[in-house]
Structure formats: C-alpha cells, structure tokens
Design a protein around this nucleic acid. Structure first.
Lengths: 144, 144
DNA sequence: CTGCACTATATGTTGGCCTCATATAGATGT
DNA sequence: ACATCTATATGAGGCCAACATATAGTGCAG
C-alpha cells in the first residue's frame, strides 16, 4: 500500500544501503561474489542434464535459496565449455524445444574442488568482517 | 626456481581455477564480493582518522587478513562522502604530506549495520554452496 | 648530497559478474 | 487465440578488485 519499496525477492529490499534509493550494488556481481558458476558445477556433479533442468537442480540443492538467472546460467555453461570444464551436445530430437545436454569433464571436477576452497575463504572473510563490524558497532555505544 | 606461479600474496596462486593461467576472477570484485566499503566502515567506527591510518586499522582489525588497496580505499571514502555516509576535511598543516581526516556520519553508522546483514547473508550462501559442492563431490566417488 | 623507503593522497584502466531486458521457438491448457 | 511453461540465447549497464601510475613531503643511510 504505502510501502513503496520492492518485495519481489530480488535485491531491491535487500540493498545494503537499506534504503529505497537505486541500489548501487545489485549489478556486476560485486554484491555477493560469483555464485552461478559454483552452483552450476554443483548441479552438474549430480549428473549430466540440460540447462533448464540444471537451474531446477540448483534450486533444489539449495532449498530454494538460489534462483539463478537463466541468462547467466547459459552464459556460464558456454564459457565453462570453451574452457574445457564442461562438454555438451544437442539431445536427440523429441517433443518440445531443442535441448542441450551438459556434462562435467574431469577438469570440471577439479574446478569444483577449487571452488570449495574459494567459497570457504569467502565464508570466512564475510564472517570475519561481520564480526568486526558487529563488535565495532557494540563498542560505539550510543552517546547521544 | 621452476615454480612459475606467482607467490606475492595476491590472487595469482589463489585463482579458483587452481591453475597458473591468467586468473579470470581476480578483478571486478566478483571474486569475493565487495570488501573495501565494509572494512572502511569498520575502521571508521573506531573513530575519526585519516586515510592511511584507516588502511592500517583495517589490517589490525582483521589480524592481517585484509590488506585493502589504497586506491580503492580512497575511492570508497570519496564516494561514501558524496553519498553522505562520511564527512572529511583537511587536517591542520603539520610536518609531512597533507592529511585528510575522515569521520562517520549517523547515516554511515546505519550503513554499517546494513553491511552486517549483507555479510551474514554472504557468509551463509558461501557456506551453503561450499557444503553442496562438498557433498556432491563426495557422492560422485571416483569410479575410474 | 643523493637515493630509497615510507607516508599520504589520488586517478586511470581492465576484466568479470549479476541483474535486468529482450529474443526466438515448441508445447500445453483455457 | 492467448497465457504460461519449457528451453535456449544475446545485449547492456553498473559495480568492484586489482594493478598501474602519479604527485608530494619526510627521514635515513651511504
């Protein structure tokens, strides 16, 4: 009603500024750090699948926490293929739109292992910074 | 010696690809997500200071885990000032290069609180994705 | 006296990512 | 016929970290 801020599950309401002003950190991935690539790798580890199914698998694997943009997902799959981490081919013709089947290569499995390390580091740094901020806010007691 | 990879504490050796190829994820903040702004806010919560000192404070607050680029730090401080989260002025003339003193505004404190929420979310998602990947890798037992 | 390292502030540039937008095409249900 | 879902894809904007580069003041060692 008179709540003019967005509530569509995207970044509008989750802007770090906590305001309705145009959020300056919802593009370019600098907000959270890359997520689509590791999510795609996780889904592919569960077995070969087509793009649309991988997106669904990501949602299931993360209990609905991650809903990756299909545009970004296909872009990542393409790039991972050009880099040799994924292999894909058009699936046999059946009813419905043409499907492309994606499968992880051995190098892709190694890449996934690398991402675990990277994500743990991000988790650690995020927690560390959140702790530092929390303590600093607590010390800076209201004096007004 | 014959180890051709970098070892200068930057992202070279920490590339998510785990290879010596030009790491494609060490620029644009997409690697870890934004860190300079919350770190700057944390340092400013400790009291007004000049830029160079804030960088040192960040190092201390994070036990050496974070060594922010001075270029980026000054850029963030400037932007935070134009956005009203920080106030600064040239310090009185003394020996040495000219210094600028930065101080958090009330809005800046609110912004810092918003960053705690954001960082906890990033911590949570990073941990979730790392868990998902770890479990998927464990299930995909070596069959070769 | 010179050169180097530190202090202190700053701008330029590049590459990658997320988000949002838009597009094409096949199938199904109302 | 239209809306929705399935399925694949490209374009564009904005942000960030990292690296580079610049200017200027100071102190110290050789």
């Amino acid at each position: 009603m008179n709540d003019e801020t967005y509530h569509d599950g995207r970044h509008h309401g989750a802007c770090v500024h906590g305001t309705a002003r145009p959020c300056c950190r919802h593009a370019g991935g600098a907000g959270q750090g890359a997520l689509v690539e590791p999510a795609a790798l996780a889904a592919l580890l569960g077995g070969a699948a087509h793009g649309y199914d991988l997106r669904r698998a990501i949602g299931e694997l993360t209990n609905g926490q991650l809903d990756v943009d299909p545009g970004g997902l296909y872009r990542v799959l393409r790039r991972l293929e050009t880099e040799g981490f994924v292999v894909s081919e058009w699936a046999g013709s059946g009813p419905g739109p043409q499907r492309r089947n994606y499968e992880l290569s051995e190098e892709g499995r190694d890449l996934a292992e690398g991402w675990v390390v990277h994500l743990r580091e991000r988790e650690r740094l995020s927690g560390l910074l959140a702790d530092v901020l929390t303590e600093a806010l607590a010390k800076e007691a209201p004096t007004e």
